[in-house]
Design a protein around this nucleic acid. Structure first.
Lengths: 136, 136, 136, 136
DNA sequence: GTGGTCTAGACCACC
DNA sequence: GTGGTCTAGACCACA
């Protein structure tokens, strides 16, 4: 369980934890059903407060990335959409997901373009990230 | 100067202002050298605090999107990279820009994939946004 | 003895057990005097801790839904009120029961109304549940 | 802002706060757009911790009952469904709401029946609560 | 002024 | 052992 936390970052710690876990799931470093450290353990290991870790876990739970079990702690839970719907790209759920991400993507592309990033370079970067996530 | 602010959003007001201006620049609704309202004017129009607008403007100035002159007020300033370097996609400056955006893009793609968004759909969405920004 | 436990649910396991037994009694799937598995048996079958099952049984005993006898194990016990008083709807015991459930019902109705559920729909849902419980 | 908190209750304080606010909204004691005390103020008045109040507010925000604004604190927000959809009882959103409440309602009715509450008495109690909420 | 975040430490409920 | 809740107090970001 490798977490790289930047305590002087603008983004709150619980957000960093959340982001890194989502990334790890997407890259396959964390698999469906896999157990991750309990709130206490992770807090001790990382030298941060239990409440902070808990906040990250609750956030992940709400988003469907985590299932929290009183018996065995926390387990990764990959939302069905990524498994079931990957072959139905026209599905309403997927469309909703795209629409939700669109504003962020628009902003990201704006910043890229204004810094001289061509469409080709941007798209190839996306491809590269996709491939890396699939492979790993 | 159309600003759509969501006061109950999680993202701070000054960040919303900054984002919308960046977007407007990328979409050509704001052009290089164009004057935008002074801090005071915009604050009055939007009914928000001057300090908030000022923070957004300072942020934009730091990022190079704005030039603030005590005499002529604030003017949009499109970074040279987007003009000059667009034909040198291998340039160091551009590479730096990509590397800076990459973590955000990785996270965005992670979330998209985990919600069932296929690479094709994601790329076509990117293309669509690129085209829309170029046209407008 | 069918128990559907959701280990990642917010409601504690012992509460889930208790709820499902109450529901089964109301729907006639468990009848008055019927024996149900011992604490140990149920715990083994469900793969949960004996202490947890015991807690559920003690709760049910307190509420009058269960009689626990060291010799014959646990037996369902339908409170007399539901048999004896059903024809005396004005009885003090029944009134007490209604008053006890009222706060929960008020909250439930509040949430229903605020989500656009009309009185007609709510009442017809109640009727449906009543009929289903009587039939089964 | 009247809150009746039972510190020795089983239900957590933040849950009690949440429930009472939902009830107050349904009964019209709190109206759409109305401001409610800030986290700090309510905490001070009630003698409970800021974090606890904050948790309740965040919960209400997630459920759509509250809008939190950095400028003016918290304001009641009645979900559109209760206004817009009340005349479309067949809507999918409403159906979803009913289905979500159904398990709780089934349990409540089970307990009622097993305590001798007749269908008539239950339904009339529901009617009474509905009318009281509409009137007030 | 507001809410957002984080800490250190406590107690309890659940399993 | 686990997570859930709560406290008292702190600092920061935002408006």
């Amino acid at each position: 369980m490798l977490l790289e936390l930047d305590f002087s970052s603008q983004t709150p710690i619980y957000q960093q934890i959340r982001n890194q876990i989502v990334l790890a799931v997407a890259e396959g470093r964390l698999k469906d059903g896999q157990r991750i450290p309990s709130v206490r353990t992770l807090a001790d290991e990382s030298g941060i407060n239990m409440m902070t870790v808990n906040k990250a876990y609750q956030l992940l739970r709400q988003e469907g990335y985590l299932q929290i079990d009183r018996r065995s702690g926390a387990r990764i839970s990959i939302p069905v959409s990524s498994i079931f719907l990957s072959s139905h790209p026209e599905g309403a759920v997927v469309t909703a997901a795209v629409n939700q991400l669109r504003p962020q993507l628009e902003l990201l592309i704006s910043e890229a373009r204004l810094h001289g990033v061509s469409q080709e370079l941007f798209l190839s970067t996306c491809c590269e990230i996709f491939h890396r996530q699939k492979e790993v």
